[in-house]
């Protein structure tokens, strides 16, 4: 008796689908048998195994991306019930049904829930989010980092370029060239590093260029949405301070 009741329990999904990058999006409903401790990824796997929609018709399995399954890689980011987040840490028991799955439309859509986050990696290159240590001889150890600084810098290093902050930001869209919150915070991270600090102006210069830090409109959705709890708005304000200082420095050096 109890067994049949569990078997009858299902999870309802409404998935926004799109067959190709410029195809028209449409929604398709699915009903997946419930299992305890399910997450959105395991439900999508179930649809993949048995690609039949809610009306009982055979359909193409839903495409999505995922990797680490422990919320550290950022690959499975999608809009779940209106909010962008990682599908792996979205537990079915904690979600309102029907569960609405949509791709993060701020990015180019490849297919169904798969998006192209290339712009995020391009941004990291643009702001030089690394520490140059190469030389023609052994440069020896760099300066030490103070423990108090390391503690907050570590929080910034948790960024997994998942794209959630860009999706939540009202100023990252097709009418602007705004780089988005994540790379601005990375400038703060690499400028905090004692060796990285030696090239700090190169990174700030990148934020002064068109589509840089000026695109922020202080809606602060980013800090509310970041799955890693990174203090993005503090980073942006700190970089506002540094870029403003650099601007005046340029003027007085002329």
């Amino acid at each position: 008796m109890a067994n049949t009741m569990t078997a009858a329990k299902t999870v309802k999904f409404v998935v926004t689908r799109q067959e190709a990058p410029d195809a028209k999006p449409y929604t398709e409903e699915f009903e997946v048998p419930y299992r305890p401790n399910m997450n959105v990824i395991s439900a999508l796997m179930e649809i993949q195994r048995n690609p039949i929609n809610a009306t009982g018709k055979q359909t193409a399995p839903v495409c999505w991306e995922s990797n680490c399954l422990e919320e550290v890689c950022g690959a499975c980011s999608m809009v779940i019930n209106g909010k962008p987040r990682q599908a792996c840490s979205a537990l079915i028991d904690q979600l309102e049904q029907p569960i609405r799955l949509e791709p993060m439309k701020t990015f180019p859509i490849v297919r169904d829930l798969v998006i192209d986050r290339q712009r995020m990696f391009d941004s990291l290159k643009r702001v030089k989010a690394w520490i140059p240590i190469d030389g023609t001889y052994d440069l020896g150890p760099g300066p030490r980092m103070a423990e108090t600084k390391r503690q907050w810098a570590y929080e910034l290093s948790k960024c997994m370029t998942c794209g959630v902050c860009l999706e939540a930001c009202p100023n990252v869209n097709d009418k602007t060239s705004f780089i988005g919150p994540a790379p601005i915070s990375q400038v703060r991270l690499f400028n905090a590093h004692p060796t990285g600090e030696m090239n700090k102006e190169e990174r700030l210069e990148a934020l002064l260029d068109d589509g840089g830090i000026e695109g922020c409109g202080n809606s602060q959705n980013c800090v509310r949405s970041c799955p890693k709890g990174i203090p993005l708005t503090t980073s942006i304000a700190e970089m506002n301070k540094d870029t403003t200082k650099l601007m005046f420095k340029h003027w007085f050096k002329m």
């Binding site: 209106g82 909010k83 939540a168 009202p170 100023n171 869209n173 009418k175 602007t176 409109g217 202080n218 809606s219 602060q220 959705n221 509310r224 949405s225």
Partner: peptide, 24 residues
Amino acid sequence: YIAYTSRNNVGNYNYGRNIAFMMQ
């Protein structure tokens, strides 16, 4: 021009500062 380039999304993110962003 700034107002034109923002894509207001208070529907999904009804946070105080985001509402202030739209109100601005």
